[in-house]
Design a protein around this nucleic acid. Structure first.
Lengths: 147, 147
DNA sequence: TAAAATGCTCGACGATATCGACCGGCGTCT
DNA sequence: AGACGCCGGTCGATATCGTCGAGCATTTTA
């Protein structure tokens, strides 16, 4: 599926997506047209979902992050989901199995804003909030090798 | 801190970081050297942490994701943290306040591999695992406006 | 075995990023 | 109030880069 060169290309691009094709080609020992074609096909196959910039929430003034588990009250599931989606402070939300229906990541500027944000769903769901103290693992992709 | 043009640059770059400076400049109504300089300064200030590719775990064969809450047994905290960090299937891990010490995202190829992976920490921590059924909110940055 | 498809290199051309020089507005200091 | 210096901008030239077409080797298929 993915050969050795594809994997190296991905690794390099994950670290720095702005690298030139020429440099990229040099690092894997191919010509730039070949590399260009390989990258194009990685996109086509959906392995590369897109090229993006990583924005640092802290630098934007969001000093805190919280992991919020959300359990909608009976009959409120859809309303709650819609509310969450429309609140831009949620940076990510997974719908999961188990008692907690949603697990979401919340960006907050300061601790005193937390209550105001959660109040908006407080009458439609039970929530458990855990403040993020540190990030032992920063976001990273799963292993590229077929294992 | 961030002016209107910076915000528009970020929005555009988040959607497609491979856009040419020329096109980027046209979209915000500046010359390309100005835009180049602005992007450089966004990096310098740490607002842009880097340029990267988004890799799709599904396309790599990881059909499932799980959110795992991990509570190390007394005295095992550091060992558990180290174990987690060294397991490449964990795509992200937050250390949080509350009973659950860690909340991590796990990429798995199929459901029958889940047990084998969690077994590696089973004797050092209690875990609660929730399988991700869908993603109401895909990863996104917090609002860029100062609010 | 022959034909076709795949994946590569090479060279040329058009597009692009970058660099230096220059300009204008704004805050500051005398 | 006026002059100075700085910040952020434009413009044009140059060097770099990506892309395209042609051609070649290897492997797969009929």
């Amino acid at each position: 599926m993915l050969d050795d060169i594809d994997r190296r290309l991905l690794e390099i691009l994950i670290k720095d997506a702005r690298i030139s094709l020429k440099e990229l080609a040099a690092q894997v020992g191919l010509s730039s047209p070949s590399v260009s074609e390989r990258v194009r096909r990685l996109e086509e196959r959906g392995v590369i979902r897109g090229f993006t910039v990583e924005v640092d929430p802290q630098a934007l003034g969001y000093q805190l992050q919280a992991i919020v588990r959300i359990r909608p009250l009976p009959g409120k599931l859809h309303i709650v989901q819609k509310l969450i989606e429309e609140m831009p402070e949620f940076g990510e939300c997974d719908k999961v199995t188990g008692d907690d229906c949603f697990v979401a990541r919340l960006y907050i500027r300061s601790i005193d804003r937390l209550d105001g944000i959660l109040d908006r769903i407080a009458d439609k769901a039970e929530t458990s909030t855990a403040i993020v103290k540190s990030k032992p693992i920063e976001r990273r992709p799963p292993p590229l090798s077929p294992s």
